[in-house]
């Protein structure tokens, strides 16, 4: 899927300008500039510790940068001072974590229903209906009454995606969502994300799944040491990059076993 001209002309939904962030003495982000358009699939790749996850956490105000401008869906995130304002933002931006983080004491259905009903004050019956539709979408209808502990990693991650979608977010952040999964279940999660992107959900992915990123992204950025080294279409990053570091990184990963398993499943 390549970037279509009309999405490019669309309004930017996320914009980072010269974002600097450090934890204590450690500089994590050293001037990040990004623009993500509505309806785009945007992938952030790069070596571990390059600040990929931190970029996502800046976008939904889980961390606050020392300097720089962050605009998300019309909100200046860097200027939010009150926790209540950050909460308002997080209700509009979904996030899915590497470790799924489902609530173990609740059933799958209740995991999905909890936040919309208690936090947004949504109607219970309507939300349960929505939750069942979402479960069907992630192909887990029969697991509605199961507890997270009874599900495989891949199934839990799909529930986590459904849980994020139940809040009807304007964009979804995926933070290395397949990194904790065994190779056989990676495919089923990627399948769900691919579907979501086809439906036009603005998605920002931090991923180590190079082939997947290449296939579904409109834009890919490569980060290293807290800076964006290069950005462009998947074709540019994965095949025609001039930067030897990117070629080394992409080349070193795409030959791995994970891609082979996924392709074997024909997804």
């Amino acid at each position: 899927m390549t970037a279509s001209p009309e999405t490019e002309t669309n309004t930017a939904i996320v914009k980072l300008e010269d974002v600097h962030l450090s934890f204590g003495q450690t500089q994590v982000l050293k001037g990040i500039d990004l623009t993500i358009y509505k309806g785009d699939a945007f992938s952030i790749i790069g070596p571990s510790g390059s600040g990929k996850s931190t970029i996502l956490r800046c976008i939904n105000a889980l961390v606050t940068p020392q300097s720089g401008k962050i605009t998300v869906a019309g909100t200046r995130v860097d200027q939010l001072t009150k926790e209540s304002e950050r909460i308002q933002l997080r209700k509009r931006v979904g996030i899915v974590f590497q470790q799924y983080n489902l609530f173990p004491h609740l059933t799958v259905l209740d995991n999905i229903v909890l936040a919309p009903t208690k936090i947004l004050g949504a109607d219970k019956t309507a939300t349960v209906k929505l939750a069942r539709e979402l479960l069907e979408k992630v192909r887990l209808s029969e697991k509605a009454d199961a507890y997270p502990g009874q599900l495989s990693g891949g199934q839990q991650q799909r529930v986590a995606i459904a849980r994020a979608l139940a809040m009807k977010p304007e964009l979804v952040l995926f933070d290395e969502v397949t990194s904790a999964l065994d190779p056989e279940t990676v495919g089923e999660v990627l399948w769900v994300i691919r579907d979501l992107i086809r439906d036009g959900m603005t998605s920002i992915l931090v991923t180590h799944e190079m082939r997947f990123a290449e296939e579904i992204s409109d834009t890919v950025v490569f980060t290293e040491n807290g800076r964006i080294v290069d950005h462009g279409s998947p074709q540019q990053i994965f095949h025609t990059a001039d930067n030897p570091r990117i070629r080394q990184f992409v080349g070193g990963l795409s030959g791995g076993g994970r891609g082979a398993v996924r392709d074997g499943e024909g997804i």
Binding site: Q88, R90, K91, F97, Q99, F103, A115, K118, A164, M167
Partner: peptide, 14 residues
């Protein structure tokens, strides 16, 4: 702490 993180991500207050 990941449970707290999950609730934060969904817009829960403390």
């Amino acid at each position: 702490t990941t449970q707290w993180e999950a609730t934060k991500g969904l817009g829960f207050s403390r």
